[in-house]
């Protein structure tokens, strides 16, 4: 099957270097739309959906392959192989920041920089380490996914998607960007929130930027500091933002943080 369809890859902009954007758990590549216009003039941009999310080919979701983040990291390397031109800057949100990191550990020569937005190497509290959650909390998330099973299921989309064409409803009553197969979503959630990659942090050699939100319940500040300490050559920038998606709610400061870091690297 073609890579392009498998990951719903789209290419925008142009430039001597490539930025490869990977969305986090929950939505799809549309997440980047407040940020990409600012980068498009200077870089070649590749956006894609993780297999199992967005408009990726759901039939390519192999529960074994994607039972660890390495399965996704291998996909990233394949995409980079086929679509990247020039130095590669990986931009990953949340779980995808770790996916990019794993890919860069596997093939460091391919990556010029890794920009990590709201990353966390492990979400579960463990002794002195504060990931922010307990195992029970993760079960609670699965339950929340479960109870929104019908409403969020991509199977239901055709019935509900009619709404935008019915102006009398006034608002777009769809949760379109977050729709997917609920079983996949649950599996992905479990894999994401139980992954522990703290041991991998010292293996990173790629220059890495950690974009930390001032207030983020998914990736709290101590987590950003932990990563910064563990990754050599890493920079930590705190962006004034409440929530886990600064690229959506504070795109300006997020862009500045990234651009500043890339300028230092001459990219």
């Amino acid at each position: 099957m073609k890579l392009q369809q498998r990951n719903n890859i789209t290419v925008h902009g142009d430039g001597p270097a490539t930025m490869l954007f990977a969305h986090g758990f929950g939505c799809d590549q549309t997440m980047w739309r407040n940020l990409t216009p600012s980068f498009g003039a200077r870089y070649r941009l590749i956006l894609f959906d993780l297999v199992g999310s967005g408009k990726s080919d759901l039939s390519a979701y192999d529960y074994r392959k994607y039972s660890t983040l390495h399965g996704y990291a291998d996909d990233v390397l394949e995409i980079a192989d086929q679509f990247a031109v020039g130095p590669l800057i990986f931009v990953g949100h949340s779980v995808s920041a770790i996916i990019g990191m794993l890919a860069a550990i596997k093939e460091p020569h391919r990556f010029a920089a890794n920009l990590m937005v709201g990353p966390s190497p492990s979400y579960i509290n463990d002794g002195d380490y504060i990931g922010g959650f307990s195992r029970g909390d993760i079960e609670g998330l699965l339950q929340a996914l479960e109870s929104n099973y019908l409403g969020w299921s991509s199977n239901m989309a055709p019935a509900i998607m009619g709404a935008p064409h019915k102006p009398e409803l006034g608002v777009e009553l769809t949760n379109s960007f977050c729709r997917t197969n609920p079983d996949i979503a649950k599996h992905f959630a479990r894999v994401t929130f139980t992954a522990d990659h703290r041991k991998d942090l010292p293996l990173v050699t790629t220059p890495s930027l950690i974009v930390q939100c001032s207030e983020d319940s998914i990736a709290p500040r101590p987590v950003g500091e932990f990563m910064h300490k563990a990754i050599r050559h890493s920079s930590l920038r705190v962006v004034e933002n409440v929530g886990h998606c600064p690229h959506l709610s504070s795109p300006g400061s997020t862009f500045d943080a990234m651009r500043g870091f890339l300028t230092e690297l001459d990219l």
Binding site: G26, G151, H244
Partner: peptide, 24 residues
């Protein structure tokens, strides 16, 4: 609940940003 907060952050919040609404 904590699980609900994660859902809120990963689904609700981005949707509010992107389409200005969430439903059901």
């Amino acid at each position: 609940t904590m699980g609900g907060r994660i859902f809120h952050q990963t689904h609700w919040a981005p949707l509010m940003e992107m389409q200005g609404s969430v439903a059901e």
